[in-house]
Design a protein around this nucleic acid. Sequence first.
DNA 1: CTTGGCCGTAGACGATTGTATACCTCTTCC
DNA 2: GGAAGAGGTATACAATCGTCTACGGCCAAG
Lengths: 241, 241
Amino acid sequence: MKKDSGEEKPRARAPSPLASGRQRLMEAALQLAATTRSLASLGLREVARQAGLNPNTFYRHFADFDELGLAVIDQLSGQLREGLRERRRRPAEAGLKLDDPADPVEAWRKAQDVVRESVALVLDFVTEHRTAYVVGIREMHGSSPVLRKALRQVLDDIGQDMTEDVLGALQLPLLQREDVAEISQLVIRQMTFFSLDYLEHPEQREQIRRQAERFVLLLFWGAIAAKAPQELAASGLRFPG
Amino acid sequence: MKKDSGEEKPRARAPSPLASGRQRLMEAALQLAATTRSLASLGLREVARQAGLNPNTFYRHFADFDELGLAVIDQLSGQLREGLRERRRRPAEAGLKLDDPADPVEAWRKAQDVVRESVALVLDFVTEHRTAYVVGIREMHGSSPVLRKALRQVLDDIGQDMTEDVLGALQLPLLQREDVAEISQLVIRQMTFFSLDYLEHPEQREQIRRQAERFVLLLFWGAIAAKAPQELAASGLRFPG
DNA sequence: CTTGGCCGTAGACGATTGTATACCTCTTCC
DNA sequence: GGAAGAGGTATACAATCGTCTACGGCCAAG
């Protein structure tokens, strides 16, 4: 009814002013989604305003918000998986070699160290990429089937990475690939809860970290004990904590 | 027909077709949120339209969408907890009595039955209240801190119920209250994933149900094995599956 | 030099939104 | 029987929305 000449003001810009177009829009969307609402509920103009761009610029890069979401997921999940893989490679080369790979006590001790390191790794990552992580979890249960599926896939991929890692590095006795794969998925999913707790309750971080470690170890311990309780008892292993 | 302060509903049953105002708005919001978007992103007019009411009627009952969300949560979480409690009371009175409560084999067999029944119970509930459940999970990770907190509390309450139930009915050897409480929270949270899988993949329901049962048993088994591997081995118990 | 993609801007449109004000119809209570 | 108030409706308005069309720089290929 009235002229639209109202100021689409060059608002205070949170995203990097240097990055161009596409990237600025993605960062702006993430920023808004983290503080305001879900990705799908964002307004085209809202995002453009936050990015300091003209509303129509959105059309140059994305057809809709699902497309933007997928681009963000692609970019960040790549960073995440690579980061996980890289940091996971480190302890394997460090002083964690087993003196006697057949010694179950040694193997279990190493497993504890690896679990501790891996949990710390995940919690560090989510702390560093807080907004992206929170939005990711949100959209994993969100209203867009496309984003839901993509994010589930990310989780499953990470679970598969973890499976390969455990199989290759730990060689826990008696556990088959399928056992490890199942446990990995359970762990990855549960970690989403631990991670959110971790972010939201900074004063309880040490406790949450220990709970997470304990959960992982408990699952492995239970799986081993389920397969061979006698051998486990005879090995003299003790559950930590 | 209705007065103000104090009591609300003359009937526990609230049929969809012709319920009064408030209820129609809540149901309309649920319906829209399940198919369209997140609760917080719904429009006031949108909901009123779906409910077949004038937009301004919304104001008569709710100040904002958080308030509507809380009302929905209140109503449905009450149904859920009561339903869980009631159906959980059943097997306790049925033929599941222990011949010898001190017999670990008997106790473990009963534990398996209770776990099976409880998992079935949860999966049945989410199937029956699909839309409400999906929206609930969505808002648990959603953008409104108020609804997030309320839904976390619901989960924790259910976990507490489960703790009391396990302590009272099962009396698994060697597990302290805190152990059971921790396991309960882990189980309840993991069940959110199992439940969503269950809803989204009807063709794999039996498999998902078994996975869920196995997860619960694995946690208890692991916890017992962590406390006393020797006793567990000596008892002659076998892990099912 | 010209052509054609990109990338970004400008202005305008119709639709929809949240909300404010006012009016109407029932109960319920004194 | 009159007051109070809750539930529901009608109308109106400014703001914001998504989208359309048109315009202008930039850079590489012809």
